[in-house]
Structure formats: structure tokens, C-alpha cells
Simulated assay, not measured.
Amino acid sequence: MTDTIDIPGPADGHDPRGRALVTGATGYIGGLLVPLLLERGHTVRVLTRSADKLPREWADRVEVSEGDATERADLEQALAGADLAYYFIHSMDGSGDFVARDRRLAREFGRAARDAGVSRIVYLSGLHPDIPDEKLSKHLASRVEVGEILMASGVPTAVLQAATVIGSGSASFEMLRHLTKRLPVMVAPKWLKNRIQPIGIDDVLHYLVAAADLPADVNRTFDIGGPDVLTYKQMMQGFAMETGLSHRLIVTLPVLTPWLASHWVGLVTPVDAGVAKPLVGSLVHEVVCQEDDLAQLVGRPAGGATPYREAVRRAVEGD
């Protein structure tokens, strides 16, 4: 454990938005969220195992707490003085029991946040159907459990539940991209016909930032999604059209199990198998928003929700 690096606050000594702790700041979502919080006037602190891996664009504008989220002392150091905490920690790495690790991490984080007097936790979870947890995929059931643990921590928590996030660097988008580009003809699982409500990364970031301003007593889940409900097959065809590829010939079969499909995905995409396999397993479910309450509370993104093909266009142009 190393000491938090202190940086000067605003010139007038006033911190208009409070201190926000961002975990997982070297990851996809966390790395994009930090500069937006800075623009909103937050003092931002990041918890990271290695300060050297932080993006150069904002590394010198934040407080850095080097440490490990599995260590109570490191959590206490990172959370000290924080008003708001973004929880982007997960253990999907292909080794061991990620469900048990995520359960333990969430419990310890929730306890440490409560003891530190944090006013709100914001967690990005997975959109899922309204069925018993035991019938969900392992990945989605774990995401649901983590959200429940954080909401039960004693710290008001906003659990934002999203399906496929469309943005360059999103694991689920990269899987979609590589499947579409590399396989003009494919035999695929029947659940590629399941309905999905994807959401553009800009919209996800809008809701993550806005969740900081929710009323103090709000402690619940929120579904977030884009304006389009599509099958995974339609998403692949939409990606092909936006990127100038020919129409993809996709034949679905009822016999390709999630286990087999995960290995199939691993053969044709560079997405890490420890991440790809749980994501593929979750595609057996239809994931469509059941409510739109967060937009009613904090407002929609500027210009409205981003259509799927527009989100794809932005993602490709941003490469």
C-alpha cells in the first residue's frame, strides 16, 4: 500500500461537486468516466494497482491511491473523504471462481464505503430478464448479486443495468465487431435471434455521471438502454452495413450450446476467453429494458438516446 497522492484543489478552496472515487480506472468504462467527472467539477480519486497504467490525458489531474481492492487498508485509504464511489471491479479473468471473488469484493467494498461515510455508490451491472437468479447465466447472476450486496451495504446505491455497450474498447462490442468482420458466412446458435437493447457508450457515460445527482434516498436498480431493440443477428447485419461489409449469411442451429459457442467465439475473436465465455453465456437471455425511470429522474442524453447504427458509426470513427 502506498500513500494517496494529494493534488491542489480549486483555486478558491471550494470543491463544488465533492470527491468521487473511481475504481477500475484503467479499464474501459472507468477510463472514459474520469475526465467527464473532472469536467463536472468533481475532485477525482482513482484506486489502481499501478499508477503507471493510468491514461496520460488525465493522470496528473486526479488523486491516485495505489492499492488492491482486496485489501481492507487500501480500501479505507481510497475511500477516505470520498462522497461518491463508482464500483467497476470484476473478476472475469478465466481463472478460479469469479462469482465467489466478486461476492467477496462487493461485500468488503460496501462495508468500507459505509464506514467511510460515502454518500452514494454507483455500479454498472448487466441488463437481465425478470427470472429467478438460478436460471440466469453465471455472469448475469453474479452481476445481479453484486448489485444486491452493494444496495444492502447501508450506502445508497444506484445499480445501472445495461445490455451490450456499443463503443470501441467495450468487450461485448469488440466481440460483435470481430465476429461480423471475420465470418461473412457462419453457423451460429439459435439464440442469436434473442432480442437485445444495446446502448451507446456516450449514453452510458451520461447516466453514470448523472447518477451522482440522484436524491439521497434512492437505492435501487435502473435499466438503461438505447432506442432500438434488435436481435444479435440484426446487430451484426447493422454493423456490416455501417462499415461497408457485405450482407452476412447467418444460419442458426439449435444444437450449438453456450459452452460450444464460447469456444467458437474464442477461435475467431481476440477478446480474452475469460471475458468472452461469460458474455457468450449471457446471450441465451433476451435483455430488454423493463422501465425508463433513470431518464425520468436525471434527463436523457443531449440530443436523445443514440440509435444503434449511430453508436456503431461513432465507435468505428473513434478507432
Rank of each mutant, 00 (worst) to 15 (best):
I5H: 10
I7T: 11
I7Y: 05
G9M: 13
D12M: 02
H14N: 09
D15L: 14
L21P: 07
L21S: 01
V22F: 06
G24V: 10
A25E: 08
G27Q: 00
G27M: 03
Y28P: 04
Y28C: 01
I29V: 15
G31N: 10
G31A: 11
G31H: 13
L33A: 08
V34Y: 05
S50Q: 09
D52N: 04
P55I: 11
R56E: 12
E57V: 04
W58Q: 11
A59V: 11
D60Q: 13
E63S: 14
V64F: 06
E66V: 09
E66F: 10
A69E: 09
R72A: 13
A73G: 03
L75Q: 10
E76F: 13
Q77M: 13
D83F: 02
L84A: 01
A85E: 15
M92N: 05
M92L: 07
D93V: 06
G94K: 05
G94S: 11
S95V: 13
F98C: 02
A100V: 10
R101T: 14
A116G: 08
G117E: 05
I121H: 05
P132D: 07
E134M: 09
H139V: 03
H139C: 03
A141P: 15
G147K: 08
E148K: 15
I149K: 15
M151Q: 14
M151P: 13
G154V: 01
V155E: 11
V155Y: 12
V155P: 13
P156K: 02
P156N: 07
V159Y: 13
A162C: 15
A163V: 00
A163Q: 02
S170Y: 00
F173W: 00
L176G: 05
R177S: 02
L179M: 06
P184F: 03
V185W: 07
V185C: 06
V185L: 05
V187S: 08
P189A: 15
K190D: 14
W191V: 06
L192F: 15
K193R: 14
R195V: 00
I196M: 13
P198I: 00
I199V: 04
D203E: 07
L205R: 11
H206P: 14
A210T: 03
A210I: 03
A211C: 08
L214H: 12
T221M: 15
T221V: 15
F222T: 04
D223L: 06
I224A: 05
D228L: 02
V229C: 00
Y232T: 01
K233C: 10
M235E: 03
M235I: 09
F239E: 02
F239R: 09
F239K: 04
A240W: 04
G244Q: 12
V251R: 12
T252Y: 12
L256G: 11
P258Y: 05
S262N: 01
L267H: 03
D272C: 01
A273M: 06
V275I: 11
G281M: 07
C289E: 08
V298G: 13
P301G: 01
R309T: 10
R313P: 05
R314Q: 04
D319E: 11
